[in-house]
């Protein structure tokens, strides 16, 4: 993982704009998409069964929302602790999302899709051809995967700069920060613990 992080290319700007704008866009886009987890689990109330991979997919989508949400709301005052899980999440997401895409594409093709047989006399002049339908679907999935990878590159680049800024400002080492965790709520303690573990993992690697 550390070797992979080292190999990820670094970008200096986002479409000619400062990197934090790119992070604001990528976090906003990702947050909106992660809300799919709630709707996936809502399916349970309709009696729809979920497979193991769907459970994982939806639960992980919901779990990352607080981390991405905190980073999104503090984009103008970013900290290493807040953005460490974002970097980890984006990198891991870009790696394993391809597996989910392939698995769910398999599900679609074999369980949902039907072969279309044209009925004589019907007007198909403005109906999309099957190759067009599959082509657009394929390129949308591919485009989504590429965007996820770009977001991971953005997050790594942003974090690298954040480390540099923190060193210039002489930021207090996160290890030394005393936090009154006992008086925090349980989920705040867990969020902090995850952030700290991610920060420790990334320390020295980026």
């Amino acid at each position: 993982m550390s070797e992979l992080l080292q190999k990820i290319p670094v970008v200096q700007s986002f479409l000619g704009l400062p990197l934090y704008i790119g992070m604001e866009v990528s976090l906003g886009v990702t947050l909106l998409n992660k809300f799919s987890g709630f709707y996936g689990l809502l399916a349970l109330f309709t009696g729809h069964p979920l497979e193991f991979l769907q459970w994982v997919f939806y639960l992980v989508s919901i779990i990352v929302i607080p981390f991405y949400g905190e980073a999104f709301s503090t984009i103008l005052k970013p900290s290493l602790l807040t953005f460490a899980p974002v970097v980890m999440g984006f990198v891991v997401d870009s790696l394993i999302s391809a597996i989910f895409i392939l698995y769910f594409a398999f599900q679609w093709v074999y369980l949902e899709d039907v072969k279309i047989e044209q009925v004589p006399g019907q007007d198909y002049s403005k109906s999309a051809s099957q190759s067009y339908e599959y082509g657009v679907t394929f390129f949308t999935a591919l485009g989504t995967q590429l965007v996820r990878m770009y977001f991971a590159v953005l997050a790594v680049s942003f974090y690298r700069k954040l480390v540099k800024v923190a060193s210039i400002q002489g930021e207090v080492n996160v290890d030394d920060v005393e936090l009154d965790l006992k008086n925090k709520r349980f989920y705040q303690r867990w969020i902090y613990k995850v952030q700290y573990q991610c920060y420790k993992f990334l320390k020295g690697k980026l």
Partner: peptide
């Protein structure tokens, strides 16, 4: 298009 949206929904959002 008729298939693109339900296909993309399943592929990107699991169902």
């Amino acid at each position: 298009t008729v298939k693109v949206l339900p296909a993309v929904e399943t592929i990107l959002y699991g169902d």
